[in-house]
């Protein structure tokens, strides 16, 4: 078999794509909720980091990875409320506040990590989220090893994408959330509470990004490391834009970017620089924004504080 065939014919590549896409798809989904309601959210990186840290911390302390998962997601959600408060109540510049949240999260997780665990790192016996094998599906050749055996959070992610799509596009709540992000004045006029829906959007964004961090710390591994999100929050931002601010699009983009990551690992084995492959998500996003492959447009009121005129 040729070298190319060895790389692309190996189901391992696609299984790894799905795993690599998960910590991108979850925050991208979160960003979608936030920006659909009109709050620009570049704080996914920070929300992921606190999710990753508190996920490990609570999992190690309670010996339960599920409590870790809950704690990590909640940590992301709670941190994101600071963004929501500054953006909605104080009408602050959302990009700057997002950056502040990222700086704070990077600092506080590293500070707590050093202070609580010291040089030894998080406890080695921290429980991690289980890998699930789906009987029947797993036995199918080629497809089986890709879809039939993954970390439980991969399946949760896929479920959340479907649920999010349904909520955003097929329920009254979703319609209202989108309305608030497109035309807050009109929404306010018909009695929709703009601020409340924006708080909800940002909070859901934080929960989902936190969950993405949990996947990194107790899904793939069972430890935390300083700065372990490694810019994934920003790639997730790219995935959200590339996916045109929709859950299914975000998943598609996350899969594409996850594939780029998985491929860069595989290509390293045959001497192709992983750094060059790693540029792909960013380059594709710029191309998407310039409209060469279908223009990607943000919600009309994305990033604009809403000040009711009374």
């Amino acid at each position: 078999m040729s070298v190319v065939g060895q790389v692309f014919g190996n189901p391992e590549l696609y299984a790894s794509t799905l795993a690599m896409a998960t910590p991108l798809a979850l925050p991208a989904l979160g960003g979608t909720f936030s920006e659909r309601t009109g709050v620009v959210n570049i704080a996914m990186e920070g929300n992921m980091l606190v999710g990753a840290f508190f996920g490990v911390m609570i999992a190690a302390a309670t010996h339960s990875s599920w409590l870790g998962l809950l704690a990590g997601a909640l940590a992301g959600g709670i941190l994101s409320l600071s963004l929501a408060w500054a953006a909605i109540r104080l009408q602050a510049d959302q990009v700057v506040v997002g950056m502040a949240v990222n700086l704070f999260a990077a600092g506080i997780t590293a500070f707590l990590f050093n202070t609580i665990y010291g040089p030894n790192g998080t406890p080695p016996n921290t429980p991690f989220l289980p890998t699930v094998t789906i009987p029947g599906l797993y036995q199918i050749p080629f497809i089986g090893p890709i879809l039939g055996q993954q970390n439980v959070l991969v399946y949760i992610m896929l479920l959340l994408v479907v649920v999010s799509h349904y909520v955003l596009f097929h329920t009254t709540l979703g319609l209202r959330m989108r309305a608030v992000g497109e035309h807050p004045e009109a929404s306010d006029t018909v009695g929709i509470n703009v601020a409340r829906l924006r708080y909800l959007g940002v909070f859901l964004g934080g929960l989902l990004a936190g969950l993405g961090g949990v996947f990194l710390s107790i899904g793939l591994l069972n430890s935390f490391d300083v700065g372990m999100t490694d810019g994934r929050g920003y790639i997730a931002l790219a995935a959200m834009i590339f996916g045109k601010w929709t859950p299914l699009g975000s998943l598609g983009a996350a899969l594409l970017f996850g594939f780029a990551t998985a491929l860069s690992f595989a290509l390293q084995g045959i001497g192709i620089s992983s750094n060059l492959v790693a540029m792909l998500p960013y380059a594709l996003t710029i191309i998407a924004l310039t409209g060469l492959i279908g223009r990607s447009r943000p919600p009309a009121a994305d990033g604009i504080p809403y000040a009711p005129t009374k």
């Binding site: 104080l90 009408q91 510049d93 506040v97 502040a100 949240v101 999260a105 600092g107 506080i108 500070f111």
Partner: peptide
Amino acid sequence: VSPYMTDVITGIIVFFVAADRLYTY
């Protein structure tokens, strides 16, 4: 004190620079 403490402080400063309405408020 872990040197990362200065990142925490920086983050808080940026937050309140952006949210300067708080002081006016």
